[in-house]
Amino acid sequence: MRLSHDPPLDPTPGEARDALRRELLRPEYNDSDLLQRIVDRLRRWLDDGVSTTAEAPPLQTFATLLVAVLLVLALVWLLTRLRGSARVRRGGAVLGERGVSAAELRARAEAALAAGRHEEAVVDAYRALAVRAVERGRIADVPGATADEVARALVEASPDRAAGVPAAARLFDDVLYGDRPATADQARSVLALDDAVAGAR
């Protein structure tokens, strides 16, 4: 009688594969949904926080909630300030383009209007009006001047011809910093204001 040195295979290889497959299909091996685990962890943290708060004195609970609200408000304020700063950096100041003449800005505005780019036409037309006033010595050359500051200076310099300048300044701000669309009529009105106030033509 011959003895086999190999142990008997019980179960067979096929049966072992089936058993392993059934084992791996059990729910405890498939609990790998990352989103569900994150939600469960947050729920546990929230439950722990609520139970801790329930045991804390009312004054301490109120102070904790107040600090949390203030932190959220500070975060919202910081995000809005960062967005506003990014818009200002992207757009630039009214008199920010050094070395560009009023005539060049006026030509750019007219070309943008002809091409249907009304927002560019409004911005360049208002800048042309401001730069022309600087070139003629009517207002001071202040590189960081806002549209509103330029409007006030123009109204002081030419009160009889600058009545529409504050409205044009608001339009400039709305288009450049508020990302609002402009119409052809609005662009033409700023060009006409350049003519009236600065005597472009």
Score class of each variant (00 low, 15 high):
R21F: 07
R2S: 13
N30Y: 03
R90F: 15
R2K: 11
A54P: 02
R106C: 08
G178N: 11
R21H: 11
A167H: 06
G96I: 04
L66I: 09
A102L: 06
A198E: 00
L42H: 04
R180H: 07
D148P: 01
Q36R: 13
E149P: 05
G96C: 05
P8M: 02
R152K: 14
M1D: 15
A145R: 01
A74S: 13
V39F: 06
D160T: 09
S85D: 15
L24I: 10
V155P: 00
R41M: 11
R87P: 09
V50T: 10
R180Y: 03
G137P: 02
A184C: 03
E28K: 09
R161Y: 05
E120W: 03
P11Y: 01
E120I: 02
A151L: 07
R26A: 08
P7W: 03
E55V: 07
T12D: 06
P57Q: 08
A198Q: 01
D47E: 14
L3A: 08
D179A: 13
L176T: 11
L193H: 12
A162V: 01
V142Q: 10
S32R: 14
Y126G: 00
L105R: 04
V122Y: 00
L78I: 08
V100W: 01
L82M: 11
A184W: 03
A16R: 14
A93Q: 08
E97C: 03
H5C: 03
V150N: 05
V123P: 00
P13K: 04
A125W: 02
L75C: 09
A133Q: 03
V72A: 14
R132Y: 04
V123F: 00
V76Y: 08
E28S: 10
A153L: 10
S32C: 10
L176M: 12
L25D: 15
A153C: 09
V69M: 15
A54T: 07
D33R: 08
S85V: 12
L82W: 11
L46F: 09
E135L: 03
I38Q: 13
A54Y: 07
V123Q: 00
A130G: 01
Y177A: 08
P7L: 06
D31H: 04
I38A: 12
D194I: 02
P143H: 09
A109I: 05
V122D: 00
I139P: 01
L171I: 13
A74F: 03
E110P: 00
D179L: 12
A63M: 13
A56C: 01
A184P: 04
P159I: 08
A63Q: 14
L154W: 02
F172H: 15
R41Y: 13
R170T: 15
F172Q: 12
A63V: 14
V50R: 13
Q36C: 05
R132E: 09
T52K: 10
H118N: 13
G49M: 10
A19V: 06
L176V: 10
T64K: 14
A200C: 05
I38T: 11
